[in-house]
């Protein structure tokens, strides 16, 4: 891996967290990472979920693991040796979690030191946080510059996101940004699911993206092929938009309803609606 040149500007360490498990942190981290790499950025993903390793599977890299995060901090290998290069994207790398150890095998200080080192080599360092608010979570935000909170439009997930936001604020990190994952517009219309507005009303943090509930995610995750690299995937488009926003591009939120529907009015109301045809219009069946 000789091609990562020493950069003059430091990379950004972004932690993806949620409090609650199963909301799509790992899928989001993998897809946003893949999309950033596809935009030409150098990216390393760190799986901080020690003991419950997953990120390697979503990327289809599990059979290439030799060393892991714990090996790096314990000095059993050099940093480079634990970095697995993605099989599709040259600029995407993974530092996997150890499967046979526990969260306490790594300290917040060690994570911070690791992030400081990686910041000099990569544009983006994305950390996949474990669920919970204990040491695994503290490790994952120890070296972070920014935090992205992933939530589902569902009461218990939002409650945990709220708790996590409070902890991030208490750690004196900047206000986190929010990804609402698995939004099913049909259910929202029927009044059976919280709307994005309901979620942002409670959490009151800036929205980074909305990812539609998309069954292709299940198959792509099982195959180890990030949906972000599939141009036909609606969720993949949402992840690509999120990646673009992280690089500073002004991409309107995906509009999933008829023009001037309640959703579009809401986006305008919170200043994200852009112009008249700003959004990537994704209706009903996607495409």
């Amino acid at each position: 891996m000789g091609e990562e040149q020493q950069q003059t500007t430091l990379g950004r360490v972004i932690t993806f967290t949620s409090g609650k498990g199963g909301v799509g942190k790992t899928t989001t981290t993998a897809n946003v990472g893949a999309a950033l790499a596809a935009l030409g950025k150098s990216v390393v993903l760190i799986d901080a979920d020690i003991g419950l390793r997953n990120l390697d599977i979503v990327l289809g890299l599990e059979n290439r693991i030799v060393y892991d995060l714990v090996d790096v901090v314990e000095g059993n290998c050099r940093l480079r040796q634990a970095m697995i290069r993605d099989k599709r994207l040259n600029s995407l790398h993974l530092i996997p979690a150890a499967q046979t150890r526990e969260k306490e095998a790594v300290s917040p200080q060690q994570m911070k030191a690791l992030c400081d080192e990686l910041r000099r080599q990569f544009d983006f360092i994305l950390i996949d946080s474990p669920a919970g608010i204990e040491q695994g979570f503290r490790n994952s935000i120890a070296g972070a510059d920014e935090v992205v909170v992933v939530t589902n439009p569902e009461v218990s997930s939002v409650r945990d996101a709220d708790r996590i936001i409070g902890l991030v604020e208490a750690a004196e990190l900047p206000t986190p940004r929010l990804i609402v994952n698995r939004l099913n517009l049909m259910l929202v219309r029927r009044g059976d699911m919280m709307s994005v507005e309901d979620v942002t009303d409670i959490l009151s943090i800036p929205l980074l993206g909305i990812v539609p509930d998309d069954e292709t995610i299940v198959t792509s995750t099982n195959r180890g092929e990030p949906a972000a690299l599939d141009p036909r995937s609606r969720a993949g488009q949402a992840f690509r938009n999120i990646a673009a926003r992280l690089t500073g591009q002004d991409v309107p939120l995906m509009v999933m309803e008829e023009p001037d529907g309640a959703f579009r009015r809401f986006l305008r109301a919170i200043g994200l609606g852009g112009g008249n045809q700003g959004g990537v219009a994704v209706r009903g069946g996607g495409g």
Binding site: R159, D160, D162, R163, I165, G166, L167, E169, I202, S204
Partner: peptide, 24 residues
């Protein structure tokens, strides 16, 4: 500030909060 889930405020007087008191 907003009191998020897990936050607790106690006072032996009155309390005024500029922000929300979220569930939890």
């Amino acid at each position: 500030r907003t009191l998020r889930s897990g936050a607790s405020v106690q006072s032996d007087g009155d309390v005024v909060i500029l922000g929300d008191v979220n569930a939890g």
